[in-house]
Design a protein around this nucleic acid. Structure first.
Lengths: 155, 155
DNA sequence: TTCTAATTGCAACTGCCTTGCATTTGCACT
DNA sequence: AGTGCAAATGCAAGGCAGTTGCAATTAGAA
C-alpha cells in the first residue's frame, strides 16, 4: 500500500518537528512534495478541496507558516505580482530557470556561486551564508516564437 | 546652480519617454537616484512629504508604475515581506550583498552568470535574457558578532 | 491664450493575508 | 478505552498594500 507508506512518512516528519499530525497537514505536504514547482496558497487551497473534505484559507496559511518556520517548506515571492510561493524543502541546492514565454519553471543544479564566494571573501571580506538566483529566458519550445530581439542588454 | 541642472536632467528624461514633466515626477526620480538602496512606496511617500507640498499614495503608485514600464525604474519584491521595492535604473549590471547582521546593502560588479549562460545553452537549450542574484551573509563589521555557526549549509 | 489629453487627489474598493475566539481534535497519560 | 489539555481548525472580522473610477487640475502643444 503505497498510500499508507506515504502517510506514515509525513507522520514521522511531523512528529520529528514536534507538531501534531492532521489530515490537512499530510495533504499539504503530499501536494507540495509531488509538485515540481512552487505553489501559491490559493493553488494549494484548490488542490486540497479535491483531496480532503474542506479546508479554510486561514488554516492553509497557518499551516504553511508553521512548515516554513520548521524548514519543511521554503517560502518565496513570485516575481511579477509578489504573491507568496511555497515549495517542499528537498534540502538540495538548486535554482530555477523561468521561461518568459510559457512561464515553465525548470530546475537546474548548476550554481556559479561557489567561485564567487572566494572572490568576495578576499576582495571585500564578506562571508556568504546564502543566496538566491533566478534566471529568466526562453526555453527550447518558446525561443522560436519570441519577437525580433530588441536589445539583449543586462545579461 | 546644481538644483536647476538636476531638474533639467529629469525633465529631459521624461520628455524622452514622452510623458509630462510634473513636480511629483522629478521629486520621485530625484529621491530614487540619490538613494543607494531600493525604497518602498511608503518610504518614498514619506520622503516626498518633506520635499514637495503633498502627494497621494495613488499618485506614488501610478508614477512608479509608469516609470517601471518606461524602464526608468526597476521594481522588485522584498525578501521577507514581499513588499514592492523601487530603485532608479542606472542601466548598469550589478548585484547586491545583503548583510544579515546590519541589513547594509553592498553593491558589487562581480557576476558569475556569464559562464553559466554557455553551459545552460549547450546542456538544455535555454536562452537567458536576464537574471536576479541576491547574496546574503555577514559584512566585515558584523561577522565577529554572529552566533556560533550552526550549519553553513546551502552555500 | 486656448484647448485637450495627461495627471492628480479623493474615496471607495479589491485581494492577500492575519487574527480573535469558540469549537474540535490529536495524543500523552492513565 | 477513557480523560484532560494544549494544539489545531473554522468562521468571521479585520488589516494593509495596492488599485480604480471619477471629477478637478495642469502641462504643454498649437
Amino acid at each position: 500500500m503505497i498510500f499508507l507508506e506515504q502517510h506514515s512518512k509525513y507522520r514521522e516528519l511531523l512528529k520529528r518537528e514536534g507538531i501534531k499530525n492532521t489530515k490537512h497537514r499530510t495533504a499539504i505536504l503530499e501536494i507540495l512534495e509531488e509538485s515540481d514547482s512552487p505553489k501559491t496558497a490559493e493553488q494549494l487551497f484548490i488542490s486540497l478541496k479535491d483531496k480532503t473534505a474542506s479546508i479554510d484559507m486561514s488554516t492553509v496559511y497557518r499551516t504553511l507558516d508553521t512548515f516554513t518556520s520548521k524548514n519543511l517548506v521554503v517560502k518565496s515571492n513570485r516575481v511579477d505580482d509578489g504573491k507568496a510561493l511555497y515549495e517542499f524543502n528537498h534540502h538540495e541546492h538548486k535554482h530555477h530557470l523561468l521561461c518568459v514565454g510559457c512561464h515553465k519553471l525548470i530546475s537546474i543544479e548548476d550554481c556559479p556561486i561557489g567561485e564567487l564566494q572566494q572572490i568576495l571573501k578576499r576582495k571585500i571580506d564578506f562571508d556568504i551564508t546564502g543566496h538566491k538566483l533566478e534566471i529568466y529566458g526562453y526555453c527550447r519550445d518558446c525561443k522560436n516564437f519570441k519577437e525580433p530581439s530588441t536589445d539583449s542588454e543586462d545579461v
